[in-house]
Design a binder for these strands. Structure first.
Lengths: 210, 210
DNA sequence: TACAATACTGAACATTGTTCAGAAAATTAA
DNA sequence: TTAATTTTCTGAACAATGTTCAGTATTGTA
């Protein structure tokens, strides 16, 4: 895995160059601004050459989204884990929103692109498919933060809800803020940082209540 | 306005037939399944005829989204207003999510389509543009519910936050649930109703806390 | 140096949104 | 009713898109 032949190195470089160019185009001109011909022009290949590396435009987009989630997870993972749980979760949420606001079109694409022909349902029927969530890298970061907040007594659990339910609650709240910031509220010139923090604070009070 | 000439009636009928057909196509085949030729075939016109009624495909989509928001507002408005504020706001939120789940592609389009060349900013610079929100029909429904909840003592206000901030908090939370249901969690066979209600309940505890 | 695999190009195809000259239909004027 | 005019619609065409494919370079191996 570590040692690559010169050919494989070239392949990987081109593969990545295509994805980088695609990501940049999407970030600047939106997903509708991405064309195979334009993409080919940027990396100085003919349009047909792209099909040596990817089966279709859809596959390219899928790969860009996949790498996007990796960068996203990395971004969230960079939040200082030595912070007290309450602050940590707040900053985690703000990082989530920040990522969205700084790459609005890209974020939008990530969260509106359905995974291509996922092989989920392999363990299927019986098993609760929310397991998929728990396996998700960025959700796991949140989940660990929540578990710590429970240990620190910041959030209370009950018969109905444990760490998973609390994490879900935080997720939807933050995701809603991020999403609205990037769609409905996008062109409203107003700084939402303060109200977002306040809003999160209110939610934490609910999570702390018995 | 009420009396229309036969010609105007025909125009309006065709106009609406186009939008209805477009909405149906989007609901069944997604936005990428909408083509001018396919749309024309459904209403039994030639593709070029569509341009007699709309300037472009983009304008058609815009109009479909606009009517979508009207239907959406109507849907929310149908929630029983005689319910106690807490229950009312809960049911309002669940209706929001229901609308999304029942028309996933359509909902997605509505909340990811940027309004075309909006004339906002006309009162501009000085005025806080969050006023746009307060003018929004569906947000107003929520706002009135929140004001009632304040009157009933269900939610507390503070120096930092009044009805607007509380409404925003509820909105992002519910919107996050709806959005995730329609994107990330779409193909997970799991009933989220229970956890969504629970999640909302937790938020209300925060809103009730001092 | 010859052979084989890989990487790429150019030209073509079907499909898309859109335009436009003109035919058909509906409305108005005579 | 007829003639003129306006509205409504069609067919053919255009440029741009994603994709394919035969064939040509380029690279790697014997």
């Amino acid at each position: 895995m570590i040692n690559l032949s010169p050919r494989e190195k070239r392949q990987q470089r081109t593969h990545q160059a295509i994805l980088d160019a695609a990501r940049k185009i999407i970030s600047t001109k939106g997903i509708s601004g991405l064309s195979m011909r334009g993409l080919a022009r940027v990396i100085e290949y003919s349009p047909a050459a792209l099909y040596e590396y990817f089966g279709s435009k859809e596959e390219i987009i899928q790969a860009v989204v996949e790498q996007g989630f990796e960068r996203f997870t990395g971004y969230l993972d960079r939040v200082d884990k030595t912070l007290p749980a309450a602050e940590y979760l707040t900053e985690l949420g703000m990082a989530y929103i920040n990522f969205a606001v700084q790459n609005p079109d890209f974020f939008l694409l990530m969260f509106t692109t359905a995974p291509l022909a996922d092989v989920h349902g392999e363990l299927s029927d019986e098993a609760d498919e929310t397991d998929q969530l728990k396996a998700d890298a960025s959700f796991s970061i949140l989940l660990r933060g929540v578990e710590r907040s429970i240990a620190e007594g910041i959030t209370k659990t009950g018969a109905n809800y444990g760490a998973f339910e609390i994490a879900y609650t935080l997720w939807v709240h933050v995701h809603g803020m991020a999403m609205l910031q990037v769609t409905n509220l996008r062109h409203i010139s107003h700084d939402f940082d303060q109200i977002n923090r306040l809003s999160l604070h209110i939610l934490f009070e609910g999570l702390a209540a018995q």
